[in-house]
């Protein structure tokens, strides 16, 4: 901060390139974004994040939170939200304003990232339906964690789309309960988020 001001800038004779003008009226394209937020693991931090979303009318499609660095007492919150580019930018800026927030990363903007979600799916059926459910589970690489004579609990892991597809197929095969973790996400490659 204590940089010298006088003569700091080299005098450039070239004109400064200016940013392009923002479109006068932005086409309101609503898109899903996965945002990763590194926060202090302290009481109330989740309430701050959730309160921010509800108070300002933003969507939460999915939200997960867990401690990721016990030494520094840091948690990572993964939020899948949706909005126009201006709203997404606002969401990130608002998150960044919260005092216990260390870093906000938009994994969707970052490009390559991996996202996974786990679901536990209970199906109650007999006969053909029971056999069909097992066959579909096999295609989805879902494991049967529990089975009785007339029920299964499947564990399916994958992208939100894959989990959705599995659950949809189970609907006609005796689906009774679903429990999902929400999305965990991280960037690809060596770069840390």
């Amino acid at each position: 901060m204590a940089t010298k001001k006088a003569g700091r800038k080299p005098q450039s004779p070239q004109p400064i390139p200016l940013p392009a003008r923002p479109g006068a009226v932005e086409a309101p394209i609503v898109k899903n974004h996965t945002i990763s937020v590194l926060v202090d693991n302290e009481p109330g931090v989740l309430a701050r994040v959730v309160g921010l979303f509800s108070g300002r009318g933003y969507n939460i499609e999915s939200l997960t939170v867990a401690e990721v660095d016990p030494k520094e007492a840091l948690s990572r919150i993964n939020i899948v939200t949706s909005g126009t580019p201006m709203v997404i930018e606002q969401i990130k800026a608002q998150l960044g304003r919260l005092v216990p927030v260390h870093r906000v990363t938009d994994l969707t903007m970052l490009g390559a990232s991996v996202e996974r979600e786990l679901a536990l799916v209970k199906v109650r059926s007999t006969g053909d339906k029971r056999i069909e459910s097992l066959r579909i589970a096999d295609v989805f690489r879902a494991r049967a964690l529990d089975s009785t004579i007339d029920s299964f609990v499947f564990e399916v892991v994958g992208t939100t789309e894959k989990v959705n597809a599995f659950i949809r197929l189970m609907e006609s095969l005796g689906l009774t309960d679903v429990s999902r973790t929400g999305v965990a996400a991280i960037s690809r490659g060596a770069q840390s988020i």
């Binding site: 003008r21 923002p22 304003r97």
Partner: peptide, 13 residues
């Protein structure tokens, strides 16, 4: 405050 920028009105800089 970064959240004040582009909140209501899009700006160039």
């Amino acid at each position: 405050d970064p959240s004040s920028i582009n909140k209501n009105v899009r700006v160039d800089i």
